[in-house]
Design a protein around this nucleic acid. Structure first.
Length: 608
RNA sequence: CGGGGCAUAGCGCAGUUCGGUAGCGCACCUCGCUUGGGACGAGGGGGUCGCAGGUUCAAAUCCUGUUGCUCCGACCA
């Protein structure tokens, strides 16, 4: 029996070699095996639906479901069908090419990770219920990897021992698991998802910053190639600290994060992070401070109306307290909102902010609704920098039903007792911190994030190497993720119409579909096959819709699935000798002479 | 984690108030007819009514428990 085994193995070897050849060669091979080629719609598993499940909320979710891209297995857990997986693979291929050209090397790490490495880094206890945990038959604990910092750091720590081996950039494209409290929006927030993550290891901070920049640039190319409208947004890497972080955010009204961006320059930041310029008010002649009665005017709106002053002339107070029950009063202009994160960053030792209890406010000698920095002592007072530029404004008087008028903070606030800082929330129309033009606000989908980790994990997991001086040092790390499914969903959010998806050709499941309007007509079918073969030979990713459906059904499916180009073969086109091409995005029809079809389609594709 | 809603055929839904042995549209199968934008006609297949227990001669329907899904909020980043 041994010889059978040997032959079997030899055949496998040949098969795999063939698989590894270039696309062009596989196209030539496909020509010979066309009869079993799955590029025909009759053989493609693409179940399209007229209606979407009631639970689908987002356009991308509905369309992916209707177009036969995904099916749900459980909440936040999906199968990818052939069309969906083709697009996923195209996105992954773009990512691979850019990662490789930036010096990355692809690896594959386990989904199932031992508890020990998480215990070692301290995150086993910290991660919480979002990490899916399981035990093997011996009772040993494991987790389904929500991320791979521990895995990769322990992977390299015993092997990479010299600065000469650095920098090292390793990445993988892998399923990740996060047991979201509330999975929703289809692939946008799922519990199992495909993610590319690259980890960089450098000998020093300079090296880490170079790696960071390489990734930043690679991300820019990746999302451009995917045809996304996006912004790299300055983000907070908070607890991890000490470095930069950018979120690559696809602009979409359905997005979960809110960002401010400038149309004039490249500024973009999350609403929480955006640093703002001081807005100066026009100087005025200073009037004397005066206390006035304002009965029951405990909101800015009421005060403004009662005293008949513009809202920009009022000062709003928000009272917080921290874990130690310290009272923190934040003051912003009446038409502005307080940014809690910025406030928290001003207060040393504060980890959480809560709305202050009224008794705290009273104990400090003030009262809710009428708080003021003037004449209050027992509180941490933080004043927005823009407030300091106001003249003759209205502020609370720290007693019920009374306000000060003609408040000029520079004159009236006790400079020693207040902290002046940028603590307000960005608003549409605020001047851009970079160029001063009015900012725009939009919502966005975070499709990728780059950030520097520094030594956080190398220290926690004791991953060291020897530098030029023979001294032991911890790796300077960075990590860089891209949500592949999210990228697909974001592309659909940005590119769809009433009929369905509109793909960019780089990530479309097929670039071109050839449709004989009546596949039962042998002449049409033969003609369509001819064009289909020519396109395939020219390297076009093409599908032949040879289904014996009515033309309307096929057209509807084409639009729904969103192939960038449709080639239509009909009695009309047969007679004229021309071939009709429809551009999905514009709805434009074009007619090409038979001999020019391939050439023109190749040209057209460059523009899509 | 708090608050709402839903669970009946692959998908969308009706039937539940008032218990009587399950229906509609789309999809699917067969035949006919039709073929440039989700045709039409005739016939047909498919459901332990989320699950478990209870009440009753009889439960999709009433009662109890439970699970899942979903929306809003909070939390997380």
């Amino acid at each position: 029996m041994n010889w059978i085994r040997i032959w079997y193995l030899r055949l496998w070897k040949i098969f795999w070699r063939a698989n590894a050849l270039t696309i062009r060669i596989s196209v030539i091979m496909a020509e010979n095996f066309l009869e079993v080629n799955l590029m025909k719609a009759t053989q493609l598993y693409a179940p399209t639906l007229r209606e979407s499940p009631a639970e689908a909320e987002l356009i991308s979710h509905k369309l992916m479901f209707r177009a036969g891209f995904i099916r749900k297995a459980a909440g936040g857990i999906y199968s990818y069908l052939p069309l969906g997986w083709r697009t996923m693979k195209k996105i992954m291929q773009i990512i691979r090419e850019e990662m490789d050209s930036a010096g990355g090397q692809e690896i594959m790490m386990p989904i199932v990770q031992p508890a020990e490495i998480w215990q070692e880094s301290g995150r086993w206890a910290v991660y919480g219920p979002e990490m899916m945990r399981l035990k093997d038959r011996h009772g040993r604990e494991f987790a389904l990897g929500p991320t791979h910092e521990e895995m990769i750091t322990t992977l390299i720590r015993d092997e990479v021992k010299s600065y000469k081996q650095l920098p090292l950039l390793l990445y993988q494209i892998q399923n990740k698991y996060r047991d979201e409290r509330r999975p929703r929006f289809g692939l946008m927030r799922s519990r199992e998802f495909v993610m590319k993550d690259l980890y960089s290891f450098d000998k020093d901070v300079d090296g880490m910053n170079i790696s960071y920049q390489k990734m930043y640039d690679a991300y820019d190319r990746i999302f451009k190639r995917c045809g996304l409208k996006f912004r790299p947004v300055e983000a907070d890497n908070g607890a991890i600290g000490g470095g930069h972080s950018h979120e690559f955010t696809a602009l979409a009204s359905s997005g979960e994060s809110s960002i401010a961006y400038c149309e004039n320059c490249d500024f973009a930041a999350s609403d929480e992070k955006a640093e703002l310029k001081i807005i100066k008010s026009a100087p005025e002649e200073l009037k004397p401070l005066e206390k006035v009665q304002t009965p029951a005017c405990h909101t800015i709106e009421l005060v403004k109306n009662f005293l008949n002053v513009p809202i920009e002339k009022t000062i709003k107070a928000v009272a917080f307290m921290d874990d130690d029950e310290r009272l923190i009063l934040a003051f912003v202009r009446g038409d502005h909102d307080v940014n809690e994160i910025k406030v928290m960053n001003c207060v040393e030792g504060a980890n959480h902010l809560y709305m202050a209890e009224e008794k705290l406010i009273n104990a400090a000698g003030s009262c809710a609704g009428f708080m003021s920095p003037i004449g209050i002592s027992d509180a941490i007072i933080i004043v927005d920098a823009t407030v300091m530029e106001m003249y003759n404004a209205v502020a609370g008087a720290n007693e019920i039903d009374a306000h000060f008028i003609n408040v000029t903070p520079k004159r009236d606030f006790n400079a020693e007792k207040i902290i002046v800082a940028d603590i307000r929330m960005v608003q549409e129309g605020d001047p851009c911190p970079k160029c001063g033009k009015p900012l725009k606000m939009t919502r966005g989908i975070e499709v990728g994030q780059v950030f520097t980790l520094g030594k956080k994990y190398s220290e926690a997991l004791n991953a060291k190497f020897l530098d030029e001086d023979g001294k032991e040092r911890f790796f300077e790390m960075g990590c860089y993720g891209i949500g592949v499914g999210r990228t697909m969903a974001a592309a659909i959010e940005q590119n769809n119409d009433a009929d369905g998806i509109i793909w960019n050709k780089n990530i479309a499941p097929f670039e071109v579909v050839v449709v004989p309007v009546n596949a039962k007509d042998d002449k049409q079918l033969a003609y369509a096959e001819e064009i289909y073969n020519e396109l395939a030979k020219s390297g076009v990713d093409v599908l032949l819709d040879d289904r014996k459906e009515r033309a309307g059904v096929k057209f509807k499916d084409c639009d729904l699935i969103g192939y960038p180009l449709r080639v239509t073969i009909s009695p009309k086109t047969l007679e004229s000798g021309n071939v009709e091409v429809k551009i999905r995005r514009s709805g434009e029809f074009m007619n090409f002479a038979r001999a020019e079809v391939v050439k023109n389609i190749l040209e057209l594709l460059k523009t899509l």
